[in-house]
Every structure is written in C-alpha cells, then in structure tokens.
C-alpha cells in the first residue's frame, strides 16, 4: 500500500532551484535510499517531507494516519535534558499518551542501546550516542515512516554497523527513506533507489532494476603479477583493460561467456590466479550517473 506520494516537488530560493520536479512514491515496509552528491537537494527534500520547509510547488500526499519520525544528520539536543526526559517529551508531543510515554521511551532507549545511559544528560553524549538518541526520538512514537538524513555518515565504522543493524531490524514494521553517501550501506538496505543530481531526480527504481540498467557485466581476471597481466592484455582474444595485476574483460551481448574465458586459460596458462564475473557496483553506478549529468 502506498504510504507517501510526492508529485512534482519543487523548492526555489529566489532564482535558485534547490529541488525541481521530484516525484516518487513510497510503499509500506520498504526501504528507499536517497543518494546523490553534496548539494544535490537530499536534505531539502527530506526537510520538505518532514514539514520543516514548505515546497514552492508540487504536492506531498500522506496516507491517512502516517506518523513520521525524522532524524537530521547532526541531531541537536537540549544538553540539560537526560536521554529519557528528551525521549519522553518527544513521545508526548508526538501524541503518545502520558501514561504510556515513559515505558515506551525506556523500551526505545534500550532498543537503541542507551538503556544504561538513559539518565545521563545529552550534553555529555558522544557522537555515536547522540545518533542513537536521535534514532530513539525518531521511533519512540512508532511512526509508519522514518525519514533519516545521512543517519550513519558521522559515525565510525563500528558505530555505523550498529546503527545499520538497528535500521535493518526496523524494516519489518516501518517504511524508511534515508539519504546517504555511503553506497555500501545503500546496497545493503535498499528496496528502491532515488538518485538526485542538481535538485532533479535523475534515476529511480529498485536496486535490481538500476543495477541491471547500469550493469556493465565484465570478467575480472586476477594475475600473479602485473607483468603476466600485461602479457595477457597484449595478446588477449577479447577487449581487455589492465589495472595492475587485474584485467577486466567487458561482456557485450553475452560474450565472452565466463566458461569461454576459463577454457582459454586452461589451454593457455598465462599466470592467471582467478576468474570471476562482475557487475558494476553501486559506487560505479553513482559515479557514472553523476558524471553523465
């Protein structure tokens, strides 16, 4: 079921267009990554969806009863409030009954791993703890839709992993729209991709569709040393591009098949260590789309 429908969303600051004609739809219990280079309009789009900014043109239609949770890139908290006090306040303002707000806040803080720090003031929190508290305030009222602006970009690898795991565990009940620069994360937790560039949506679709569109299949051959790779590149029966001790053979129209390449190396030992079939990574797709624009 559709949870949110965005049509021709546009945000203009004077003459400057920050977001232009962006349209997409989010269905229930899906995870959508909003990717794009800096200044592409990701935060502006999320801010409009969160109600912080009013769009210049276009419409945002919510399915009845959709509650929203929003996590900015750098969430700021009142430093003199404890994590529990803040989360409880957030729950009550979001409409959670006063009687339930405290218990729900405690449960949420435990879920994000702040159970032991719930009575500490937010002013004393590290970056990672602030991000967890940010996530707690975004989900404490059990919204149907979570809007997350670069939820893990400010974290170290272990913090990133922990938050990503938390987000993955929320996917069963919640629709998630998040912006990110970290494409590995997007690849890991994405049903739909929205690619923004200069405020415009230049690519969208399921991860599988986008990958197929930009697949560029190739065969990756690893050699023992760069010399062997160079010798092979010179006499290879197919187009081949060398990168150090690795050679890439583009697959066009299904040729060459991996079996064909493996057969060649069986018949002509050339110092090859491994042969595997690859498609473009999301990062390569990102660079290609960004470059195309």
């Amino acid at each position: 079921m559709s949870l949110l429908e965005v049509k021709k969303l546009t945000k203009r600051y004077g003459e400057e267009l920050a977001v232009e004609d962006v349209s997409f739809e989010l269905t229930e219990r899906t995870s959508t990554a909003l990717i794009g280079p800096n200044g592409a309009g990701k935060t502006t789009t999320l801010s409009m969806l969160a109600g912080l900014l009013k769009q210049t043109e276009g419409s945002i239609s919510w399915h009845n009863g959709t509650g929203i949770g929003f996590l900015p890139q750098y969430p700021q908290f009142f430093p003199w409030l404890t994590a529990l006090e803040f989360t409880e306040m957030a729950a009550k303002i979001s409409g959670v009954e006063a009687k339930k707000a405290r218990a729900q806040s405690v449960r949420t803080l435990e879920f994000v791993g702040l159970g032991n720090a719930k009575d500490k003031k937010a002013g004393a929190f590290s970056g990672g703890m602030k991000q967890r508290l940010g996530l707690a305030q975004a989900i404490v009222h059990q919204p149907k839709l979570l809007l997350l602006d670069e939820p893990v970009s400010a974290l170290d690898p272990s913090g990133r992993r922990e938050i990503m795991n938390l987000l993955k565990s929320l996917r069963e009940d919640t629709t998630i729209l998040y912006s990110t620069h970290i494409l590995n994360d997007a690849e890991e937790m994405t049903d739909q991709l929205l690619f923004l560039q200069h405020g415009k949506l230049v690519e969208q679709g399921s991860l599988k569709d986008v990958k197929t569109r930009y697949a560029e299949p190739r065969i990756r051959v690893t050699f023992k040393d760069p010399e062997s790779a160079g010798l092979f590149t010179g006499k290879a029966p197919w187009d081949a591009v060398r990168d150090g001790h690795i050679v890439y053979i583009p697959v066009k129209g299904g040729h060459p098949a991996i079996e064909e390449v493996m057969g060649y190396f069986a018949a002509n030992p050339s110092g090859a260590d491994g042969v595997e079939r690859q498609t473009a990574s999301l990062e390569e797709i990102f660079l290609k789309v960004a470059g195309r624009q």
């Binding site: 912080l52 929203i68 900015p72 750098y74 969430p75």
Partner: peptide, 13 residues
C-alpha cells in the same frame, strides 16, 4: 540557530 528546535518542529507541535 543551534538546531535544538528541529526535533520539536518536526512533530505535530
């Protein structure tokens, strides 16, 4: 200015 209001303004305040 500090951004502490953001997490209030995104709610049905």
């Amino acid at each position: 200015r500090s951004g502490t209001a953001t997490l209030l303004y995104v709610r049905p305040l």
